[in-house]
Computed example of a mutant assay.
Amino acid sequence: MANLKIIVASTRPGRVGLPVGQWIEAEAREHGGFDDIELVDLAEVNLPFMNEPNHPRLAQYIHQHTRDWSAKISEADGFLFVMPEYNYGYNAELKNAIDYLHNEWHYKPVGLVSYGGVSAGTRAAQMIKQVVTTLKMIPLNDAVSIPFVRNFLNDDSVIVPNDVMKSAAKAMLDEMVRVESALRPLRTQEPDTAAGA
């Protein structure tokens, strides 16, 4: 049973990301394959743009916000990134949050829950794969892609999913359980992050 962190990437006022994150969190809880699930909202984490003087692989953090972020990511066994598409790419806040750390991401699966207009955020999802694989993360092939996302919001700003979204979520969460379990031995062999590289 894994510790799953659901990271809501968008931080802007009026965002759809938080309702999407809350919906996928409910799906993950219903799924039952995870021991601990936490919704992590980058708007609340509120990381400044990278201000650590040392390379993240050394884990020599001087700021408390980085140490807190490191602890949060270290305790996770897998992630779901709930991400918008901005100008055919992923948003800067998500890239910044990833770049703060290094070892903490290693050998952990990541599921992509993207949303947008006609493209459903798929161009952003494709772009981020080269970033996460550089950090030894494993992006899942199964994903959730939500086109015209505002059509699924009700008056209370709650996502009302269709059957395609629900089946995609189940397939992604099933795969998360399988891949997380397979990667676990690699994580237990990881060197102490404080030792650097």
Rank of each mutant, 00 (worst) to 15 (best):
P48R: 12
F49W: 15
F49I: 13
F49Y: 15
F49V: 15
M50E: 14
N51F: 05
N51W: 02
N51T: 14
E52N: 15
E52G: 06
E52P: 04
P53T: 14
P53H: 13
N54H: 14
H55V: 02
H55I: 06
H55G: 04
P56F: 09
P56C: 01
R57E: 09
R57D: 09
L58F: 10
L58T: 07
L58Q: 13
L58P: 11
A59V: 06
A59G: 03
A59F: 15
A59P: 05
Q60L: 08
Q60R: 10
Y61L: 06
Y61R: 04
I62K: 14
I62A: 12
H63S: 11
H63Y: 15
H63I: 06
H63L: 06
Q64C: 09
Q64K: 05
Q64F: 15
H65W: 10
T66N: 09
T66A: 06
R67K: 14
D68F: 14
D68Q: 11
D68N: 11
D68S: 14
W69T: 03
S70P: 01
S70K: 07
S70C: 02
A71D: 08
A71Y: 11
K72D: 10
K72Y: 08
K72F: 04
I73S: 13
I73K: 10
S74F: 15
E75F: 08
E75P: 01
E75S: 13
D77W: 00
D77Q: 03
D77G: 04
G78C: 14
F79M: 02
F79P: 00
L80T: 01
L80V: 07
L80C: 05
F81N: 08
F81L: 08
F81Y: 09
F81K: 05
F81G: 01
F81H: 05
V82P: 03
V82S: 08
V82F: 08
M83F: 00
M83Y: 02
P84N: 02
P84H: 08
P84F: 04
P84R: 04
P84L: 01
P84V: 00
E85P: 03
E85S: 01
E85Y: 05
Y86S: 01
Y86M: 12
N87P: 13
Y88F: 13
Y88T: 00
G89D: 10
G89S: 08
G89R: 10
G89W: 11
Y90P: 12
Y90M: 01
Y90I: 00
Y90G: 00
N91E: 05
A92R: 11
A92W: 13
E93V: 12
E93D: 15
E93H: 04
L94N: 07
L94F: 12
K95E: 13
K95W: 07
A97Q: 06
D99N: 03
D99Y: 10
D99T: 09
D99V: 04
Y100H: 09
Y100N: 03
L101P: 12
L101W: 08
L101K: 15
L101E: 10
H102G: 02
H102A: 03
H102Q: 07
N103S: 14
N103P: 00
E104D: 06
E104V: 11
E104N: 02
W105M: 04
W105T: 02
H106A: 10
H106P: 01
H106Q: 10
Y107M: 08
K108W: 04
P109A: 11
P109W: 12
P109E: 05
V110E: 01
V110C: 00
V110H: 05
V113K: 02
S114L: 06
Y115V: 07
Y115N: 09
Y115L: 03
Y115S: 10
G116W: 12
V118I: 05
V118E: 07
